[in-house]
Simulated assay, not measured.
Amino acid sequence: MIYYISDEDVKKYLDIKECINELRDAFTSYGNKKSYANARDRIYGDNFILNTMPAYYEKYNIAGLKTYISGKNGVRFVVIIFDVSDPEKLFIIDANTLGQIRTGALTAMVTSLLINKKTINYTLIGSGFQAETQLKAMASIYDLNNVYMYSKNYEHALNFSKKFDFNIKASRDLSVLKDSDVITSVTNSKTPIFDYSMLPEKYHINLVGSNIIGRREANNDVLDNSDIVISENLDQSMKEASEIIDMKNKNKIVELKDFIINVNKYKVNKSVFKSMGIGLEDIAAGYIVLKNMKVI
């Protein structure tokens, strides 16, 4: 039997805090070699790119992939999940909102492993589609003392700041970084938005905005001067993440699956997480939807 799950279903049944907890379990399982994920594969056509991201999640005995096609006619995301114990059950989930929620949940989960404070100052760079769930996810695990919103277009930052009940301060420049415990950049910038000189003595940075070679949000010196750089999949990062490809010392790169099972090994003041997206995140988030809908 084939089940189709709409974007509206995802909005209704995928809770961001529940997603944070599930992603923690998924990467712990991955680190313990019980679950698996491959790097993104791309097929390039004349006018389109077909992307596939397969994974297996042992906790629920599910396997599947996120796949999406993008090109001049638009983009469409879906997650396909098989119940391994009953392959006749096939779930196809619209994944536009799912990807937005799981991306916010993922950066919040990783941040929680590195920043132990209850209250933080938070800067969000970029006011587009992904920014809202970045903020909501961070607010679900931290008390946000100061929230700064920066966009290259100040009016966009101002409009974003009016959408929420949080006390969000739209900023005309990035001097606010010096007052930030956590910084998330979620833009499509092709050139660096900030450099190391603009940062405080201690920080955690989430770089979320691109999985396409040639784009970069942070200057080279940010990653080179950080204590640790976390990647979901190093092979994928070496193909798609300009910031990681250009690092001088790649020995400081740690895959998230290895970091999460050895958190106490790392005592750092300056950390960067470069998020690219892997299929394990999507099938874990998709399972939450299916479970809450009571179809699996």
Rank of each mutant, 00 (worst) to 15 (best):
N38K: 09
A63W: 13
D41H: 11
G31Q: 00
S35T: 02
P87H: 08
L65G: 09
G45K: 07
P54N: 04
I43R: 02
L50G: 05
Y68S: 03
K72S: 14
V84H: 12
A63L: 14
K72W: 05
N32L: 13
Y44N: 07
K59E: 12
G31E: 03
F27V: 00
Q100P: 02
K66A: 06
P54K: 04
G99W: 00
F82I: 15
N61E: 15
D94M: 01
Y56P: 09
V84N: 15
K33D: 14
D41E: 13
V84T: 15
R42D: 12
V78D: 10
F77W: 12
I62W: 08
S85T: 12
T28N: 01
D83F: 11
L50T: 07
A26T: 03
G99S: 08
D86Q: 11
T52E: 07
K89Y: 10
I62H: 12
N51C: 10
F27N: 01
V78M: 15
N47Q: 06
I92H: 08
R102S: 04
P54Q: 02
Y30V: 02
Y44Q: 11
G71V: 04
A39Q: 12
A55R: 00
I69Y: 08
M53D: 02
S85L: 12
I49N: 00
S35C: 04
I43S: 07
A55G: 10
Y36K: 07
N32F: 00
V84D: 14
T52G: 08
K33N: 15
